[in-house]
């Protein structure tokens, strides 16, 4: 009985850990980017090895809880290697208790997809896109964002 319980617990832990991070392809991101709903989308590209990314993560987390009941969607797109999902990304999310929606983009050849996400992006991290699906207002930051910039841009996009 005990063994079955441990096994079930193990399966549950495995599944719930997996539920946290979906491994996605470019198509999934393109679908989000072409969304036409009246939602402010904040898409942040980051990685666990990227120090400035980790420094700004708390702002996205704050925005996630602050705007929980409004049309604001925070999406953290990890560019960690997919082979690092179990070993690095999931433990990092657990340790930092991250609540925002997180996906891992698993696409080779960035040269083939960076321009499809944002033509002005040279490929450095962190990078953040904030846009409104209805008004088509859109801003792109290829650098660390400040908390003030994040909140004021979201607010501006909501109006």
């Amino acid at each position: 009985m005990n063994r079955i319980f441990t096994l079930l617990l193990g399966i549950f832990a495995y599944c719930s850990a997996h539920a946290q991070v979906e491994v996605v392809s470019l198509a999934k991101l393109e679908a989000v980017l072409s969304s036409s709903t009246d939602t402010v989308h904040v898409i942040n590209f980051w990685a666990t090895w990227c120090k400035p990314c980790i420094e700004e993560l708390p702002y996205f987390e704050e925005a996630h809880s602050f705007y929980a009941s409004s049309n604001v969607r925070i999406l953290l797109v990890s560019l960690d290697m997919s082979s690092e999902l179990e070993r690095t990304l999931l433990p990092f999310i657990k340790k930092k208790k991250l609540q925002s929606e997180i996906v891992l983009l698993n696409e080779p050849d960035p040269n083939a997809w960076i321009d499809k996400i944002e033509p002005s992006w040279t490929g450095s991290l962190p990078a953040t896109i904030i846009f409104n699906g209805t008004s088509k207002k859109r801003l792109f930051f290829e650098r660390q964002i400040t908390k003030e910039e994040l909140f004021s841009t979201i607010q501006q996009m909501k109006e």
Partner: peptide, 12 residues
């Protein structure tokens, strides 16, 4: 191509 893009660490 004469130029390509890649993901990398931002210059500090």
């Amino acid at each position: 191509p004469e130029s390509t893009k890649a993901i990398g660490c931002s210059i500090k």
